[in-house]
C-alpha cells in the first residue's frame, strides 16, 4: 500500500542511503569528465592524423565504442579480464567495481567527445589559420589566440548535451553492482535497514538526476551566453 505516512516515516533513512549512493554517482561522473575530456582531445587528433593507419584504426575503435551499448562495454570490461586471466584485475569490492566502471566510462565518453572536438576543430574556417599565418604568427599563437576560443564556442552546445547524457548514463554502472544512487534506491525493494518492498526510493532517485542536470544546464547556458558576443 502506498501511503504518505510511511514515506515520511522512512524518508530520513532512505535519504541518507540515497545521498551515499549519489556521492558514488558524482564520483563516477567527475572521474569520467576528468579522464574523457583530455583523452577525447588526443583521440580526435589521432582521428585527424595524416598517417592513415593511425586515423583508420582510431576511426574503427570510435565506431565500435559508439556503436555498441555502454552497458555491454561495462560488462565486458568488468568480467572479461577475469574470464581470461582467472583473476579479477580490478580488485575486490566496491573500489574494484568503481575502477572498472571508470575505465569503461572514460573510454566510452572519450570516443564521443573526440567526435565533438573533431567537429569543433574542423569547423573553424581554414581562412582563420591562414590569416594568422600571413600576419606572421607562430603555430601555437594561432592555436591559442585565434582558433581555440572559436573551437570552444562550437563545442559547448554539443558537449553540454553529451555531459547531461553522461549524468544519466552513470546509472548503467548498476549492472556491475556499483553502489551508486539507483543501486541504493533498489536496495529498499529487496530490503535494507528494516525497509523492504518499497519502490518509492527508486522513483525518488530521479530527483537527484534532475537537480544535478538542472545545475549543469544553468552553467552551460551561462557559458554559452558568455561566448555569444561573437559569431563564429
Amino acid at each position: 500500500m502506498f501511503s504518505f505516512d510511511t514515506i515520511i516515516q522512512q524518508f530520513p533513512v532512505v535519504f541518507e542511503a540515497l545521498n551515499v549512493g549519489f556521492i558514488q554517482t558524482l564520483k563516477l561522473f567527475f572521474v569520467t569528465i576528468l579522464g574523457a575530456l583530455p583523452l577525447g582531445l588526443i583521440i580526435s587528433f589521432g582521428s585527424m592524423s595524416k598517417f592513415k593507419p593511425l586515423s583508420g584504426l582510431i576511426k574503427i575503435i570510435v565506431w565500435i565504442v559508439r556503436g555498441s551499448p555502454l552497458m555491454i562495454q561495462l560488462l565486458i570490461i568488468y568480467f572479461f579480464p577475469g574470464l581470461v586471466l582467472g583473476t579479477n584485475i580490478w580488485g575486490n569490492g566496491e573500489s574494484g567495481r568503481f575502477f572498472a566502471a571508470a575505465v569503461a566510462f572514460i573510454i566510452n565518453y572519450s570516443c564521443y567527445f573526440s567526435e565533438i572536438y573533431r567537429g569543433g576543430i574542423q569547423g573553424v574556417p581554414h581562412g582563420q589559420q591562414e590569416a594568422g599565418q600571413v600576419l606572421g604568427l607562430s603555430k601555437s599563437q594561432i592555436f591559442f589566440k585565434v582558433t581555440l576560443l572559436q573551437m570552444v564556442k562550437r563545442i559547448v552546445p554539443p558537449m553540454s548535451n553529451e555531459i547531461i547524457t553522461l549524468v544519466k548514463d552513470t546509472s548503467l554502472a548498476r549492472i556491475i553492482a556499483l553502489q551508486e544512487v539507483i543501486w541504493a534506491g533498489q536496495a529498499f525493494m529487496k530490503g535494507s535497514q528494516g525497509i523492504s518492498g518499497q519502490i518509492w526510493p527508486l522513483f525518488f532517485t530521479a530527483i537527484y538526476y534532475l537537480v544535478f542536470n538542472g545545475i549543469l544546464t544553468l552553467l552551460f547556458n551561462a557559458l554559452e551566453k558568455k561566448l555569444s558576443y561573437f559569431k563564429a
Binding site: 574556417p125 591562414e130 590569416a131 600571413v134 585565434v146 559569431k231
Partner: peptide
C-alpha cells in the same frame, strides 16, 4: 615582407 587581404576578409571574430 608581404601582407594579404583576403576575399573573405577572415577577421578574427572574437
Amino acid at each position: 615582407h608581404f601582407g594579404l587581404v583576403f576575399q573573405q576578409f577572415n577577421l578574427f571574430p572574437q
